[in-house]
Design a binder for these strands. Sequence first.
DNA 1: ACAAAAGTGTTAAGAATACACCCATGT
DNA 2: ACATGGGTGTATTCTTAACACTTTTGT
Lengths: 224, 224
Amino acid sequence: MNDTYEPPVLTVDSVIFQLLDNKLAVLLIQRTNEPFKDQWALPGGYSAAGETTREAMARVLSAKAGLQVKDLRFIEQLYTFDTVARDPRGHAVSVTYMGLSINLKPLVSENTQKPTFFSLDKLPELAYDHADIVHYALERLRSKITYTNAVHAFLPTSFTLTQLQVAYEAILGHSLDKRNFRKKIGATGLIKPTEKYYQEGAHRPARLYRFKNQTPQESVPIFG
Amino acid sequence: MNDTYEPPVLTVDSVIFQLLDNKLAVLLIQRTNEPFKDQWALPGGYSAAGETTREAMARVLSAKAGLQVKDLRFIEQLYTFDTVARDPRGHAVSVTYMGLSINLKPLVSENTQKPTFFSLDKLPELAYDHADIVHYALERLRSKITYTNAVHAFLPTSFTLTQLQVAYEAILGHSLDKRNFRKKIGATGLIKPTEKYYQEGAHRPARLYRFKNQTPQESVPIFG
DNA sequence: ACAAAAGTGTTAAGAATACACCCATGT
DNA sequence: ACATGGGTGTATTCTTAACACTTTTGT
């Protein structure tokens, strides 16, 4: 390495998913500056020397969306994009992350950039190559929930089997057979029944279940 | 973004695999500078502004190992590591790539850094967190060959079914049943028979096959 | 004729799919 | 009593896994 070394600009972009109204939704902010001024985009920003890209992601999420990274129940690095010229000053490299959680309430104020969760089937046009990044994240998520306990991030600590199935269906984008679903989810050993029931409406109460682990766990493949 | 922005140091590291002597082997170089002077490491180096990380990878491979990236038959980005302090000057971010090919001959000269292919079961101690990176790459490779045509990168354009099976076994690290292997590989539709045979030794000649596509293709999962 | 690798099919077990009725509750 | 979502089992098809002998060639 010589003394004239100039590193490229490094940025981070986050794809934050949660379920809203039984649909998968992604967090977007509205840009306040050029390029793509006023367009919707993933929350992202610069990563500086002396912080990890995860730390940069935390800082950016807090600044642009008023969300704390500690409220995310699953975080995973996705991919590093470096083909798009995102900054007029030249070549930029963007490390992307996927975050999953429940009950996220982005803070809309004059300090943030109109952070809003959009249902995946009603996405606005996105800045940069962010539509590609969302697509990539969705593929990863779909694949991830078929061999890990990653859905746990979308559900309360205890939940009914119907809630769990609805979560899978929202993410996978198609419906599942109730009996086969219960058979397979039981076979994974990822969840356990509790002694509690959830009563709502004029019908039989539903047994509540929990995930045995909140930390990432592998399992046998489930649900094509 | 303000004027005091300082990007972190950006590096690339490559995990280059090929089969040698029916075993999976990885390319290492011997470091000539501190830190980890004289230790074996993955070929890596700085990525500068104005080049993509792929271009940086090509430059570094050529400089340190005398290999041309156009001779790689499969390249894929793996993961971006940014937790290891690899440079005394501070925090560094490393984008890693996996490359696969056949008949790679690294150039050992005074300009390169003793580039050598090591069988995976005889790896020396590696600098930095490079053992982790190799392990990560191996997992990715094992998974990749079970649902894509990625093995094609390790084989000549036409090959026998036994050669193909030996390649799978070398990568997966365990042996496979010959009849079941042929049944499954046939079912993927990834390969097609040619009219040629390969004669070697005092036994029945083996039919030669080709991959239908050299470009990345998905298929049904094969070979646990 | 023998040695050496190529080639080929069947059976059994397990996994995936399709499918319909009874249960517990509130009104 | 009825409406609503919760809960359960079986039969069929498909997939996987285990396993051994015949074929073609060179010497």
